[in-house]
Write a protein that binds this DNA or RNA. Structure first.
Length: 451
RNA sequence: GGUCCCAUCGUCUAGCCCGGUUAGGACGCCGGCCUCUCACGUCGGUAGCAGGGGUUCAAAUCCCCUUGGGACCGCCA
């Protein structure tokens, strides 16, 4: 028997923007596939017509590409595979694994409320499971609306989770669940199982929120006679204050789109998310290639890590200050020619945590102060002195010598010069700014500051 | 109400399976050095086994209970 090729997938529903919780799932799937010479697939779970939108689909593609998480093959859209799901549902009914259910939404809701009020676990009581196939057929042909429910059965389902080991779940007593809706759309459970099966997915790596769903899906797979994949449930990432980054919570703060606008490098986002919950001695910048070599699912923790902006900024700063300038330059939006930009970036990058800050510094150095400067008399005197010295010889050492003679201290003079040249008292070393600007520009800015 | 997952510095974690460590590292924070300054770098410091019972000479580690956090129980995914 030959070993099956590893196939993983990322399957978001296009009902919102991708956030770093999603990205972590995508990244782990991506890395695992790459490490095993397998394939990483992308699927859109868009069976909920109400909430899905094309805009979100495009956003997902864009974010994934921007991050460098390229998927293999085309994108599977569940909304394009409706016939397939209906066919499978029909087969399940035929074989007795599923049955038509004629209960109305109102009925079910009332029942559910009643159960909750009595302190019972909510669940379907299975009344339609006792309708005979012939009666069901008759009601359907009369045009009565129905859903298709899967017979969950009893007992217990055991499976192995890559991260948590052997797990065992007792099946709920009233657990028959809908696999096909009245409108003919499949529900999540059916669609996942069918798609994973058809695509030959070998490893289902997803959020921990799916852990309790897994027994149902395994039963479905078994009923269909498919191969049960290996499961790996990642702890849900939490953001800021006790909030899970999940579809129901506000996770806008960590959406890829917003982070990109804030000036994060895609590589930094990937590193930040990779380190999260991973016991590694590696530190950023690492990058995708390095991650493929070093990452290991078994080194992931099982408790929910908290993602903070501090962490993101620290990783981004590591990239900005340590990565190749030629790489950073690609993400800086400016009209400055690349060669020049590289020089500028080398000088100012240690003062920047984000690309936006970097851009501000680049502009400050290249263009000069963006607002008219105001110096008091005392300060003007000092600047005049500097100008006069530099007319003779433009260098820091010449200036220092002259300052010594006149009894001026560096900390009284240097910040003033920096202010005159780039509009900030604190910042990159003056000597580097000087050599970057050149004598003419320096003198012209000094004159302008004194005007 | 039921089922399940989780619990070590502020944060990410090592150690737990196979009891004996000054409970280690990283980020953050604080301080020193470097420096005109901020930052970078570097050196140092701060701080933690959720609680309670057991078992044992010895418990972060094994067992039980409690507490806390989380997920799911939908014609959402």
């Amino acid at each position: 028997m030959t070993k099956r090729e590893v196939v993983t997938r990322f399957a978001p529903s296009p009902t919102g923007k991708l956030h770093l919780g999603n990205i972590r799932t995508a990244l782990v799937n991506f890395l695992f596939a790459r490490q095993n010479g397998g394939r990483f697939l992308l699927r859109l779970e868009d069976t909920d017509r109400e909430r899905s939108s094309e805009e979100y689909c495009e956003g997902i593609f864009h974010d994934l590409r921007w991050l460098g998480l390229f998927w293999d093959g085309g994108v599977v859209r569940q909304s394009h595979r409706l016939e397939r799901y209906r066919e499978v549902a029909a087969r399940l009914v035929e074989e007795g694994h599923a049955y038509p259910c004629f209960c109305t939404t109102a009925q079910l809701e009332a029942q559910r409320e009643e159960q909750l009020k009595r302190g019972e676990p909510p669940g379907y009581d299975g009344r339609c499971s006792r309708i005979t196939p012939s009666e069901a057929k008759a009601r359907i042909s009369k045009g009565e609306p129905y859903t298709v429910r899967f017979r969950l059965g009893e007992g217990e389902v055991r499976f192995h989770d890559l991260l948590r080991g052997e797990l065992s779940f007792p099946l709920p007593e009233r657990g028959d669940f809908v696999i096909l809706r009245q409108n003919g759309m499949p529900t999540y459970h059916l669609a996942v199982v069918v798609d994973d099966g058809d695509a030959g997915v070998t490893h289902v790596i997803r959020g921990e929120d799916h852990l309790p769903n897994t027994p149902k899906q395994i039963r479905l797979i078994e009923a269909l006679g498919g191969a049960v994949p290996t499961y790996c449930h990642l702890p849900l990432v939490r953001s800021g204050k006790e909030c899970v980054m999940e579809k129901r919570e506000g996770s806008a703060d960590f959406s890829v789109e917003r982070l990109r606008e804030m000036g994060f490098l895609p590589q930094a986002l990937l590193d930040a998310v990779a380190i999260l919950g991973w016991s590694t001695t590696l530190s950023p910048p690492m990058g995708l290639e390095r991650l493929v070599e070093e990452f290991s699912i078994s080194q992931l923790g099982t408790s929910s890590p908290i993602l903070t902006m501090d962490h993101l900024l620290a990783v981004n700063r590591a990239w900005i200050t340590k990565a190749e300038p030629s790489l950073i330059v690609k993400y800086v939006s400016t009209s400055i020619p690349e060669d020049r930009l590289v020089e500028l970036v080398e000088v100012v990058r240690e003062n920047s945590s984000t690309l936006r800050e970097l851009e501000e510094w680049v502009e400050a150095v290249e263009i000069g102060p963006d607002v008219p400067l105001e110096f008091n008399e005392e300060q003007q005197k000092v600047l005049c002195f500097v100008r006069d010295v530099w007319r003779e010889e433009l260098s820091i050492s010449a200036l220092r010598a002259a300052m010594k003679e006149r009894g001026l201290k560096a900390k009284e003079v240097m910040p003033l010069i920096r202010m005159a040249l780039v509009g900030e008292p604190h910042g990159p070393p003056l000597d580097r700014i000087l050599s970057l600007l050149g004598p003419e520009e320096v003198m012209s800015r000094l004159e302008k500051a004194l005007a």
